[in-house]
């Protein structure tokens, strides 16, 4: 199986997972907000695995590092338009979400930061299987993309 096919499969599997999470969360609260929060939790979960190795809390394992970083990249590459449906900001949903209305305003850099995350996650996916040091160096780029978005578009 070549890389891109492998990749497409993984992405569609994740899309399905995302859709299911959205559905599961749909019983209470706004489904789009629930889905994107679940997506964010998946980022955090994968970063936990990588971070524990980077910090030296668990032994570095190149195979696990690489596959986890690939998960993160796949997540970052998912089409997320439906999660970020207009009309689902803090203004409309109050405490159910921390997504600021500026995400949907003219001149928003929300999409650009999404692309920045994909780039940083690809670098991490390349570095993660190389060595603990290479991996650790690339995590900062991912963190920078997450934070850049939270800085501007997530309510404190």
């Amino acid at each position: 199986m070549n890389f891109s096919k492998h990749f497409a499969l993984m992405v569609s599997a994740l899309t399905l997972a995302g859709a299911m999470l959205a559905h599961a969360g749909g019983h209470d609260g706004n489904p789009a907000a629930n889905a994107r929060q679940a997506h964010m939790k998946l980022y955090a979960f994968n970063l936990d695995v990588i971070g524990a190795m980077a910090k030296g809390e668990v032994d570095y394992n190149a195979e696990i590092a690489r596959s986890t970083a690939n998960n993160l990249l796949a997540l970052a590459m998912m089409h997320q338009d439906a999660y970020w449906a207009p009309g689902t900001s803090t203004v409309e949903l109050g405490n159910e979400t921390r997504a600021l209305p500026s995400i949907w305003e003219d001149g928003s850099r929300f999409g650009d930061i999404g692309v920045q995350l994909i780039e940083a996650a690809s670098q991490l996916a390349e570095a993660a299987g190389e060595s603990q040091d290479a991996m650790r160096g690339a995590i900062r780029g991912v963190g920078g993309a997450c934070s850049a978005c939270h800085r501007n578009y997530r309510q404190r």
Binding site: F45, G51, G143, H150, R151
Partner: peptide, 20 residues
């Protein structure tokens, strides 16, 4: 170093710039 909390959420607010 990375902006990640022990729960692997990432820093927001002004702290994002401090981490940068």
């Amino acid at each position: 170093e990375t902006g990640f909390t022990p729960d692997f959420d990432s820093a927001g607010g002004e702290m994002a710039e401090v981490v940068a």
